[in-house]
């Protein structure tokens, strides 16, 4: 029993440490090729596969700077706070059929939604403690963004929970049927878009917005603490992709799901992560007010309509 728990936690930790690196490397290469470049080619001999490891070594060597006017403890704590929620979320994302999940949780979906939202506190901490007006502006943008996307995010997740009749993530995946792809399509889009806003990825990276705010709330960070924030961003991609895959794309469902279900889940997660990267390369950044308009005038009504539709179909099916 104890060994079982330790093994699960260790596996989640391994996933936590490797998947973001894979996503990061994919981003390097995919982004490069989408821009008709090659991307990293040297670190690790074969097509630069060790580039992120080299980056990590570089970050570890850099000086750890805390600005004199900054609020030291808060400034130093923020990167850890940014990382922790995503690590916790990875615990409950189901990988395969049966018991292939870090921790069975009856209200897993709720847990995920609650914990992911905590990440923005780290952003606010970093933004305010940096004693830099660009950082503060970035943090305020992040908070304003939260007010916009949190509602459609939760509503669209509620739709699929209502369809499956359970809040447990493995339960939702188990109840999933292929025709849900069509039925839950609006919710899928709403969830994915607001998830992108949640992890502050382009086109919703206004809190960072390097062309306007230097680097937003990350401006004053250096070395390992900056690397932590970057890692949090990539874990965020993994988490949002895995959630989208598990909730809306059927998780482990696919041919021979009993034996290679985990592979399906990883493939779907990877596909969604690819889309996240693709959007970053292709689309320009929105303005903050455009995001608010999108969230309140498009996503929220869409999510509410989806809720009505889901409820109707559920009632009709008995």
């Amino acid at each position: 029993m104890t060994w079982d728990v330790i093994l699960r936690v260790a596996l989640v930790a391994v996933a936590f440490l490797t998947l973001p690196l894979i996503v990061g490397q994919t981003e390097h290469k995919v982004m490069a090729h989408m821009q008709a470049r090659l991307g990293p080619m040297y670190a690790g001999a074969f097509h630069g596969w060790a580039q992120l490891i080299a980056d990590g070594v570089k970050f570890a060597q850099k000086e750890d700077v805390t600005p004199r006017a900054a609020d030291g403890p808060v400034f130093r704590l923020a990167p850890a706070v940014a990382l922790l929620p995503y690590l916790l979320v990875l615990l409950v994302i189901p990988l395969g059929p049966g018991d292939l999940v870090g921790q069975q949780l009856d209200v897993g979906l709720f847990f995920v939604l609650a914990v992911v939202g905590v990440g923005v506190i780290a952003v606010l901490m970093a933004a305010w403690a940096s004693a830099n007006k660009y950082s503060l502006l970035g943090g305020l943008r992040a908070a304003a963004q939260l007010l916009g996307y949190e509602l459609p995010f939760v509503l669209s997740a509620a739709s699929v929970a209502m369809a499956a009749g359970t809040l447990s993530l493995p339960g939702i995946v188990a109840a999933w049927q292929p025709w849900w792809l069509l039925w839950q399509l609006p919710a899928t889009i709403v969830f994915f878009v607001s998830g992108l806003a949640e992890i502050r990825r382009p086109p919703f990276d206004m809190p960072i917005a390097d062309s306007e705010l230097v680097f937003g709330y990350l401006t004053e960070y250096t070395g390992l603490r900056f690397a932590f924030f970057l890692l949090a961003e990539y874990v965020g991609i993994v988490v949002i992709s895995a959630l989208t895959a598990a909730l809306f794309l059927g998780g482990w469902h696919g041919p021979w799901a009993e034996s290679v279900g985990w592979l399906w889940m990883l493939l779907k997660t990877g596909a969604v992560a690819f889309v996240v990267i693709w959007l970053r390369v292709s689309w320009p950044r929105l303005r903050e007010d455009q995001l608010q308009r999108l969230c309140w005038l498009v996503l929220v009504p869409l999510a509410l309509a989806q809720l009505v539709l889901t409820a109707g179909v559920r009632v009709a099916l008995g």
């Binding site: 006017a69 830099n132 007006k133 502006l137």
Partner: peptide, 13 residues
């Protein structure tokens, strides 16, 4: 506060 402490006024937000 230390000089340059981050403050904003409400109107601009």
């Amino acid at each position: 506060a230390a000089a340059g402490a981050p403050t904003l006024d409400g109107e601009q937000a």
